[in-house]
Nucleic acid binder design. Sequence first.
DNA 1: ACATATCATTTGCAAATGCAATTATTGTTT
DNA 2: AAACAATAATTGCATTTGCAAATGATATGT
Lengths: 160, 160
Amino acid sequence: MYQLTNSLPYMLNRVGVRMGDLFSRRIAGYSVTLPMYRVMAALWEKGDQRLGDLAAMTTIEISTLSRLIGEMKRRGLVTRTRLKDNARTVAINLTPKGRTLVEELIPIAIHFEEVAVSNFPAKNIVDLKTVLAEIYESLNSIEPEIAEANKARKAAKARG
Amino acid sequence: MYQLTNSLPYMLNRVGVRMGDLFSRRIAGYSVTLPMYRVMAALWEKGDQRLGDLAAMTTIEISTLSRLIGEMKRRGLVTRTRLKDNARTVAINLTPKGRTLVEELIPIAIHFEEVAVSNFPAKNIVDLKTVLAEIYESLNSIEPEIAEANKARKAAKARG
DNA sequence: ACATATCATTTGCAAATGCAATTATTGTTT
DNA sequence: AAACAATAATTGCATTTGCAAATGATATGT
């Protein structure tokens, strides 16, 4: 018997949303939203990124991200500069102010995660992360199947 | 060295969003959005729910859900009836049409999950789900700590 | 019984989101 | 080199979202 509450997408979404919500509230006092933190932490890990790369890294839709970067630039957290050698792309980086801020937030993130998983043996968490990473990879390969199933149904519908 | 891309909230969000996105596209041909599917599957699993219960079960914010139920009622997928004995609450249920539809979608969800995890031993997936469920539970207990850390900082800020 | 508090849901409104179209630049074909 | 295709980012616009306030209903204290 199928149960939504025992399905993987449901469980992932539920824990992900809840964690995001808690952490979001944890950092709200710094006037930083969760997407902003993700962008800064992504840039801290790997600077000089293009918009599309950052979008892939943060799972934020590209037009949303474009506007978010605009706002973060206005706040002096990041720079966004057109490249001279390829002016259709843009390089995004942390400003010193952005770097200082994210380096203040990262320890909070670390502590948050420590507390969240403190009930579990370290090995379980390592395994969990490994499986999550692998599932993410494997999703890429099922994408074609999804698209095809969709197409098949559309065609059937068109036929009546 | 901290890496956003190795942090649990990030990894959860990434896989969760990606899976949701893929499944969303998979069912788009049925003119059903992912939140709608979640509501229907939740009601299929446990009918006669109040708005707040459904919100907790689906992790959809309550006002968003109120409007979503309105739309689904307009489409004839669910009923929303005030109780006679307690008219401030509302009982939400699937209509026959909604039930038929969700019973068409559930096999798709099952297949989707099977494909997504087909590269992994069943035991890994069972373990994964167990840990996810436990983490979700444990998050409830850290909520106070989050609230407190926040308050402490606000107070410090107020002091200057 | 009346005022007040609490609970459950809905709604107003401003902000965030995402798709599609647009702009700007670079790459390719003949 | 001109025309066309492809890539990258931005923007217009309609929809969705979420907080806070409002509404409606029940429970509680005096």
